[in-house]
Design a protein around this nucleic acid. Structure first.
Length: 614
RNA sequence: GCCACCUUAGCUCAGCUGGUUAGAGCACCUGUUUUGUAAACAGGGGGUCGUCGGUUCGAAUCCGACAGGUGGCUCCA
């Protein structure tokens, strides 16, 4: 850590402390939890009993904080023995602090793994008994805290309280819920302003807002929460993305399959998902049979049935199935949000069944497909290699894991991908590669995933016959390049701010008539027909509005190409396109024949380019 | 599921501490206009103020429940 970030950290820590000072000044009965530094700021967990703080209280709290800051109270560090500290906590009526201190006293090392206690920071690794804990005092407020703090309350930079949220004490939903007050803080007002502007920008790009503005998808109370409906425009995006994702794999030998969306629960009992995730399944009642049915929450068990429908030879492998299909998960209501977390999830899912020695090559192909896809959509990609750790939470032979993890890494390295490794992040059934994409305003999102699976082949008794006529268990490789189309769209809409490249744009060309003379309208209709024959998504706006108004509408709909049609165009059969600024390389556009223009746009769509050659 | 906040026309929002037929802009419809690269003009239709219940002489406004949304917590095969 540089001096700079050290200082920033101390400032944020101090601000949490100052906020606690302010809150206890206003509400003396407040019981304090923990107040750590987080990305861009800090928070403090506070229990106020029946009092609930809302954002309306922020001005009051901020005013109190500013007074403390203005007073330049010195932060004085002191230490006391744990037992003394416990007595202090009891005395000050701070039961949460008391609990933390008791835990600290009881067992330093186990508690050191606890994030909350680590935040207090009085203990490090090793199993030494805790002796002293540190306190910071400013004015007449004292709080258990590791620090570090800045010298005095005047040195805390620029801050702003952002929101209040509920948070369980120590992150456990069985514990009482406290109120978490979040603030952001930076060294200078300028940096704070830049951060708030970034948030504004993010708000402008919010896919939920753009979804309405660009007419891409809707929700309906009558359909239910977390169940988006896609309009014609939004459906273009879904289909184009899905087709591309499928194409990338079909050239590699994947074959499309199809499975029903309702299935007997027996399938998931066999796969093991029922026991683990039964409460997240939508249950379906049959009126004709006694079958207990569910909406499918995943596709792999179905695909294993197709694999197992025939005897397989080592010569048949790898067998590769591909399907873009929707799964249904009954997420808890509070977890839903826009398109990023929904209850009907469309996956561009695929499963490879292969021999142990084929893993690397198969992974390699999938990585190439992912690299192609994310470079086409213009997003920076890096991957996390998620390995097992030493715990016994994993199924499958250890040698198999070793070999598989090695093959995953080889594939990632040989593709020159930016990667990092993390033990303990694997799925219980196998190691995986998680893809993180960075969007235009620097946020990183988890998107695609490639996972190895040793467990389902065993549970479903999958096998193939090898050269020596032995029955051998294949390895399964799960992969979704887009991940979930809904989640991908939520990220991608914000990445592009709704300015989709030509190949994805729901409307690629808009023709605008200068007037409503019959000759103009007929010419526009003929041009539109020509463009449609080339597969373009084109509309003609011959409404009774001014040209300026119609241009404005086209701009606001973020249409890549707008063409005005009037006497001039009709006479010369040429046009000068109006190009959406983010697409153009040069702002000078020559006139071009209609045929040439449509042909060029059609080629751009086919080539999935992100800039225009016009 | 839990905590906080929010819900007024298709969209964005106004409506002060409860008081006669709830407003605006955009969108939509009709008429006039025949338009040349980011908003022509005029008129009109449209809301049982999320739903249900309560308090009150009187509720968009206060209280409760439910639904939906937002930010978090927990979870995310």
């Amino acid at each position: 850590m540089s001096d700079n970030t050290d200082n920033l950290h101390a400032m944020r820590h101090s601000l949490a402390h100052i906020m606690a000072t302010a809150v206890t000044t206003i509400w003396p009965e407040a019981k304090l939890g923990v107040g750590p530094v987080v990305e861009n700021g800090f928070y403090y967990d506070i229990d106020l009993g029946d009092v609930s703080i809302s954002e309306d209280d922020f001005p009051k709290i901020e005013a109190e904080m500013k007074q403390i800051i203005k007073a330049k109270q010195a932060f004085e560090r002191s230490e006391m023995a744990v037992d003394t500290a416990i007595a202090w906590a009891k005395d000050s009526n701070q039961p949460y602090k008391e609990e933390l201190l008791n835990d600290l006293k009881r067992a330093g090392t186990t508690i050191a793994k606890d994030l909350d206690a680590r935040e207090l920071g009085t203990i490090t690794d090793g199993d030494s008994q805790v002796e002293n804990v540190s306190f910071y005092t400013n004015g007449n407020f004292t709080d258990l805290c590791r620090g570090p703090h800045v010298e005095h309350t005047g040195k805390v930079g620029a801050f702003k309280l952002m929101r209040v949220a509920g948070a369980y004490w120590r992150g456990n939903e069985k514990n009482p819920q406290m109120q978490r007050l979040y603030g952001v803080a930076f060294e200078t007002p300028k940096e704070l302003r830049a951060h708030l502007e970034m948030l504004e920008e993010a708000k402008k790009r919010d896919h939920r807002k753009l979804g309405v503005e660009l007419d891409l998808f809707i929700f309906s109370d009558m359909v239910g929460s977390g169940l988006p409906l896609f309009t014609p425009r939004g459906t273009v995006l879904r289909e184009e993305l899905s087709n591309y994702s499928n194409e990338l794999r079909e050239v590699q030998g994947f074959q499309k399959v199809w499975v029903p969306h309702v299935t007997k629960k027996d399938l998931y009992e066999a796969s093991g998902h029922w026991a683990k995730f039964g409460d997240e399944l939508f249950q379906v009642k049959s009126q004709e049979t006694s079958d207990e049915l569910v909406m499918k929450p995943m596709n792999c068990p179905h695909h294993t049935r197709i694999y197992a429908s025939q005897q397989r030879s080592y010569r048949d492998l790898p067998i590769r199935y591909l399907e873009t299909t929707t799964v249904y998960r009954d997420e808890k209501s509070g977890e839903l949000g826009g398109l990023s977390r929904v209850r009907s999830i469309t996956q561009d899912d695929s499963h490879v069944f292969c021999r142990d020695d084929q893993i690397k090559e198969e992974i390699d192909k999938l990585l190439q497909a992912a690299i192609d896809l994310y470079s086409t959509v213009d997003m920076k990609l890096r991957v996390r290699l998620s390995y097992r750790d030493d715990s016994d939470a994993y199924l499958g032979a250890e040698e198999l894991w070793e070999s598989a993890q090695k093959q995953l890494k080889q594939a990632v390295v040989s593709n020159g991908m930016d990667y990092f490794e993390e033990a303990g992040e694997a799925a219980f059934y196998g190691p995986k590669i998680d893809f993180m994409a960075t969007d235009a305003i620097g946020r990183e999102h988890q998107v695609a995933t490639v996972q190895l699976d040793f467990v389902q082949p065993a549970r479903f008794g999958l096998e193939y016959t090898d050269e020596q006529n032995n029955a051998i268990q294949p390895v399964m490789i799960h992969c979704a390049l887009l991940g979930s189309i809904e989640r991908f769209l939520s990220v991608y809409i914000e990445h592009t701010a709704g300015k989709f490249p030509v190949w994805l744009a729901p409307e690629q060309v808009r023709l605008i008539t200068v007037n409503q003379e019959e000759s103009t309208v007929l010419f526009a209709e003929a041009a539109k027909k020509k463009a449609k024959e080339l597969g373009l998504r084109v509309t003609a706006d011959n409404s009774n509005e001014s040209v300026g108004k119609k241009i404005r509408n086209s701009v606001m709909d973020k249409v890549p190409y707008t063409v005005v049609i009037g006497e001039k165009e009709i006479a010369t059969n040429e046009l000068v396109p109006r190009v959406r600024p983010d697409l153009e390389v040069s702002t000078e556009h020559d006139s071009i024949s209609f045929d040439n223009f449509f042909g060029t746009v059609a080629n751009e769509a086919k080539a999935r380019v992100s800039k225009t050659s016009l």
